[in-house]
Nucleic acid binder design. Structure first.
Length: 407
DNA sequence: CCTCCACAGGAAGCGCAGGAGT
DNA sequence: ACTCCTGCGCTTCCTGTGGAGG
């Protein structure tokens, strides 16, 4: 009996997937897909290509610095151009290698260097070597391989913020020690103020060439989505106005093409799940909510324990009448929770840092204000969806007893 | 005008993990 | 086995500060 039901259910799922031929190729909408054609970026592509072409003439290309907001195609353009360069280099049998490092994931000098060395075929332990040793190994690796090396440092602002500009300084000067090889860098950042905070020496050498990526406007987003929809969706699978809506929503968020593509992809997935033969505007609206929710859940559930406790304290306080809390209040509430759970309590100094981290993640907003006689403090508000945050928090066993789900 | 609250946030440094060289 | 190095999360100690109330 039960077995039969299961079979029915499974049949149902597989049938609906087979029937739903909304997508032709869903992967064409994922962020990893680098299309061969990047519209509205011809200028940037040309400029980067002409700079990197120096490598084909066996001289060192200038360092390049690209900046623009998220989803403006910086990474895609750089990856596309370097891919083409690499192909050409293979054809011409020229020793050119490109290395891509994402500095958000590898946010220490050590890991960035280790990554570069590893993608050149070297081996470095996870930790343990001195930085000087790493530089030495990098230099000897470059020299033994020989040729033109291009290192792409994506989201370069992350190492600077965490480590200062020492790494960049050393990397910009590494060429002085190289004889039969050279190293060029392509820095990518979406922090527009980043350059101003940079040491002028590094700035001049890293920014030998500067390339700006302006945000896409709604019309351009629309055209990008249309191009991509042609190869990703079956013809006629998109209802009228779906692309317009995705483009408009993403344009509102500083012309973020990645966001636009995510919206379209998730809307398609929702339509497919619901067994609809077309993607409709309602699906886009649901996709927007789902993307937001997923992001919040993901961020909250991967938080370290004490950050979760602090977030739980903020949630509790803001639900208890007022809509905001101060650092002092949060610290008191947090201390209560830790003693309840018989955990060590972090210092208030550390707690303020964690609150700032929560702020940077966009879960809360923390604004420093002065209340005159009553001191200067941070006013913290929860800005992520309350229920999503609560769900993520109570999924942690340790926190179960201190998070009250009921209203 | 000055004071003084309730913190912010910088600087230094500590202890641990863990890999390399010896 | 021992020393040396780094990253990481954290503490300790510290100086700085906007503005309401005196």
């Amino acid at each position: 009996m039960l077995k039969l039901q299961n079979e029915d259910f499974l049949d149902e799922v597989f049938k609906s997937i087979k029937r739903a031929s909304i997508f032709l190729d869903r992967d064409k909408l994922t962020p990893d897909y680098v299309p061969e054609n990047l519209p509205f970026r011809e200028e940037q592509i040309k400029k980067i290509a002409s700079i990197l072409a120096q490598a084909l003439r066996n001289s060192r290309p200038n360092n390049i610095f690209t900046y623009g907001l998220t989803g403006t195609g910086k990474t895609a353009v750089v990856k596309l151009v370097t891919k083409k360069l690499q192909e050409r280099a293979v054809e011409l049998k020229l020793p050119i290698q490109t290395v891509y490092v994402n500095c958000r994931q590898r946010d220490t000098s050590y890991r960035v260097l280790a990554d570069i060395i590893e993608s050149l075929g070297g081996h470095v332990p996870f930790t343990g070597l001195s930085l000087a040793e790493l530089y030495r190994r990098l230099i000897s690796k470059l020299e033994s391989l020989g040729g033109r090396f291009i290192v792409i440092l994506d989201e370069i602002d992350f190492i600077i913020k965490k480590q200062g500009d020492d790494l960049l300084y050393k990397l910009t000067r590494i060429n002085e020690e190289l004889k039969n090889s050279s190293l060029s860098m392509i820095g990518i950042t979406n922090d527009l103020n980043f350059i101003d905070n940079l040491d002028p020496r590094i700035r001049s050498s890293l920014g030998e060439e500067e390339i700006v990526f302006p945000p896409y406007n709604a019309l351009q987003l629309k055209s990008i989505l249309e191009d991509r929809a042609k190869i990703a969706f079956r013809t006629g699978a998109l209802d009228e106005g779906v692309i317009d809506l995705c483009a408009a929503l993403a344009a509102r968020e500083h012309g973020d093409a990645r966001k636009a593509l995510d919206l379209l992809r998730v809307a398609g997935e929702i339509a497919e799940r619901e067994g609809d033969e077309k993607v409709r505007k309602e699906h886009v609206e649901k996709a927007r909510k789902e993307l937001e929710k997923d992001k919040v859940y993901e961020v909250v559930s991967t938080l370290p324990l004490h950050a979760k406790l602090i977030l739980a304290s903020i949630v509790d306080l803001t639900r208890r009448g007022k809509d905001s809390a101060t650092t002092g209040e949060i610290f008191v509430e947090y201390s209560k929770k830790t003693s309840e759970l018989r955990l060590e309590t972090l210092t208030q100094r550390r707690v303020t840092d964690i609150i700032s981290e929560l702020d940077m993640m966009g879960l809360v907003s923390a604004r420093v204000i002065s209340r005159g006689r009553y001191g200067k403090t941070k006013v913290v508000k929860l800005i992520a969806n309350l229920n999503t945050v609560l769900n993520a928090l109570k999924d942690d066993e340790i926190l179960e007893s201190v998070v009250d789900v009921d209203k």
